[in-house]
Simulated scan of single mutants.
Amino acid sequence: MTAATHEVFERYHACWEARDPDRIAELHTHDSVFHLHSGQAPVRGRQEIREAVAGMFALVPDLAFEFLSLRTGEDFWVVRWKLTGASATGAAVDVDLADFVVVEDGAVKEKHSYVDGVAMQAALASEGTA
């Protein structure tokens, strides 16, 4: 990973840790694509990305990221996480996630997040029974 790509990774992760949709969106290119591969359509552009991220934090307000592994290249990173927290209604969230991120000119051009859909649906389905 180049120093510049590593710096983008560090800033981007810090924004997610801070649960800051505005700063996350600012680190994307204007025409960026963010696709949570768990049944949602991809969102495009900073405003749609900001809204999607804010929606994720509304579903799991205390979302936390346990770092598992990182693989890097000149203009990308692939990272595995364990996501934990509680849904807005208190259901436990414990989900595996892998992100594939393409970087262009110091910003996120594409972010593809692959989540354990069965675990996520189980956690969110618990909301209806709470």
Rank of each mutant, 00 (worst) to 15 (best):
A41H: 01
F67W: 11
W77P: 03
V101G: 12
G73K: 14
G90F: 13
V101P: 05
R71A: 14
V53C: 03
G73C: 09
R80E: 15
A88R: 12
L83D: 03
F67A: 11
D75V: 03
R44Y: 07
W77D: 04
D75T: 10
A98S: 15
S87V: 07
G45T: 05
S87E: 01
A41G: 10
R46G: 00
M56C: 04
L97Y: 00
G39R: 02
A52Q: 14
L63V: 07
L68T: 05
D62K: 05
E74D: 15
L70E: 13
P42T: 02
R44Q: 13
R50A: 07
E48C: 02
L70V: 13
S87K: 08
R44L: 05
T84A: 11
R44C: 09
F65R: 04
G90H: 10
D94A: 14
G73D: 11
D96V: 01
W77H: 12
L59R: 07
V102K: 14
A52H: 12
W81L: 03
A58M: 01
G90P: 11
A54E: 07
A86Y: 05
A86R: 14
V60A: 07
F57V: 01
A41T: 04
L97G: 00
D62N: 08
S69A: 15
L70H: 10
R50P: 03
V102M: 14
L97A: 02
V53M: 00
W81T: 11
M56R: 08
L97H: 03
A64P: 12
T89H: 10
R50N: 09
A88Y: 13
P42Y: 00
I49P: 02
A92T: 12
G55I: 03
R46C: 06
W77R: 09
F65I: 00
A41L: 10
E66L: 09
W77L: 08
S87D: 07
I49N: 00
R46W: 03
T84H: 09
K82W: 03
A88V: 15
V53K: 06
T72Y: 08
A64V: 08
A58D: 07
L68S: 06
A58L: 08
M56Y: 03
L83N: 06
Q40G: 11
L68E: 11
G73H: 08
D94Y: 06
R44H: 14
E48I: 00
A52T: 01
L97M: 11
V101R: 03
V95S: 04
V53T: 08
V95Q: 01
G73F: 08
F76G: 08
D94H: 13
M56N: 12
A91I: 09
V43G: 09
A52S: 09
D62R: 05
G73E: 11
P61Q: 07
R80T: 12
F57G: 05
R80Y: 01
V60Y: 05
F67Y: 15
F65W: 14
I49Q: 04
S69Y: 08
P42L: 00
R80L: 12
S87N: 06
S38C: 13
P61W: 01
L63F: 09
D99F: 05
K82H: 13
V95A: 04
A91E: 09
